[in-house]
Nucleic acid binder design. Structure first.
Lengths: 246, 246
DNA sequence: GCCGTCCGTTGATTTCGATCAAGGTTACGA
DNA sequence: TCGTAACCTTGATCGAAATCAACGGACGGC
């Protein structure tokens, strides 16, 4: 299989085409994007970019999960971004990474070389408009995350994370999964702790507590089944009257 | 003074023109913006928009301070946005507010009616590009805030907030104020607590502690002088090697 | 098979910030 | 001038999560 064929095969299912920058591109523009596009793979735990490094590409997650992390001098770490398939990575107009970008699982990214992408963006207004929409969505997610970090209890934090993962896993954005939903927690206890602003011991204890109380069922270390999804949502502390907003 | 005159006078010093959406507008476009623009004033404590309400305008803060707040069912509140003069409010493409927007001080906003503004945005690509830049800046700020909420101690949180306020107060973005910098904390202890994910008692205690340790000097309840700015920065827990990034 | 490493769990104890409670100060209106 | 309400401070105590510590299971290499 040649590189070219590989690229085309990926492209058919590439979320870029469907949910990200090219959502409204015509064929000519898509051809230009194809020309500056390439794929990269990473292993779990591998750091893609270090904070402060030059970052000569932008891109989207095709498969797997990446995280953005901020670390203080003394080692305290806070995750500030969780990138699932179709999420965009990198900031147009700035070539320097502000955060460590780390592969949490086996990861495939679809990258665009920075300079030609930014050129294309200037010539193609709806790319900036689409990126604006995506960035506003990310800002909303960040603000919900801030409520979680600042005001929720450890138990509510865990429940909230499970709901977020379950929702992104089920088809359709923001869909409420059916009862009995099953999914894998894609993060280690430590990464989960960094997401939630907790220690890994507290994460472990609270997951055990939710299991003990029958809110979730564990299969192995990572597999999770939710017998009653509404019950889990109640544990998050969020408004239960459904996500009308966002 | 007629309304029209008032508008024009404000416009000369209106941050909209200089730092927000019209940064690169030509005269025709500016004239269009003028036509759909109006000013609104609010008193401290007044809620501008409630979460879930219809929001038929977008705009910028001209003078004073507004906050975005998220509240849980049981009353726990987290501030998720602090809007200083020149900051943009509202989300193009969504007419429903996601957060409570509250005036923290006497406040003047410059508003654009939603429908014509969004029309103008479609016709004028660099407005979307400018808004994208601003939104990315806000996202960066939100992520720094997440580190603060998730991993910093109460003392570090207070110090970080003081640095943020002092920097925005001094001329030039991200400038490091001179030693002896003096400014007013524009938030009540309660609003400060909602910003930092603390209780108002803890805020009060930590401010007293920083005063006791000579890091800051208080003048009245809100006035603050920083004798040694570098000393304050050390208290934030952030990298001391200066904001090379952002 | 055995060893070492990584990941996760659980227990004992400590600690930081929350909570409960009491006053103090300032501003403003009657 | 006094009274009151909003805002702030400080003290005593409590509790949730951090920290310190030990252990167990899964996996991979030798």
């Amino acid at each position: 299989m040649t590189d070219m064929t590989f690229t085309r095969i990926q492209c058919d299912s590439c979320p870029i085409r469907h949910r990200a920058v090219c959502a409204r591109c015509d064929d000519d523009e898509l051809a230009l994007l194809e020309a500056i596009k390439y794929y990269r793979s990473f292993e779990p735990g591998q750091t893609i970019v270090w904070s402060g490094d030059q970052m000569d590409f932008l891109g989207s997650v095709v498969e797997g999960i990446a995280t953005l992390n901020q670390t203080m001098e003394d080692g305290r770490t806070q995750m500030v971004g969780l990138l699932l398939p179709s999420d965009f990575v990198g900031r147009p107009g700035r070539g320097t990474a502000a955060y460590d970008t780390v592969a949490a699982t086996k990861l495939t990214m679809c990258c665009f070389r920075r300079a030609p992408f930014e050129e294309l963006m200037v010539r193609t207004p709806h790319i900036a408009q689409r990126l604006l929409e995506m960035t506003l969505d990310e800002l909303d997610a960040a603000r919900e995350w801030m409520l979680l970090l600042g005001r929720k209890t450890a138990r509510e934090k865990i429940a909230s994370l499970l709901v977020i993962i379950a929702r992104r896993n089920s088809t359709g954005t923001k869909a409420t999964p059916t009862d009995g939903a099953h999914f894998d927690l894609p993060l280690t206890r430590e990464a989960t702790a960094d997401y939630l602003g907790l220690t890994l011991e507290t994460v472990s204890r609270q997951i055990s507590a939710l299991k003990r109380d029958g809110v979730i069922v564990l299969e192995g270390k990572r597999g999770i089944t939710v017998p009653d999804f509404h019950r889990l949502i109640e544990e998050t502390g969020d408004d239960t009257d459904g996500g009308v907003l966002v």
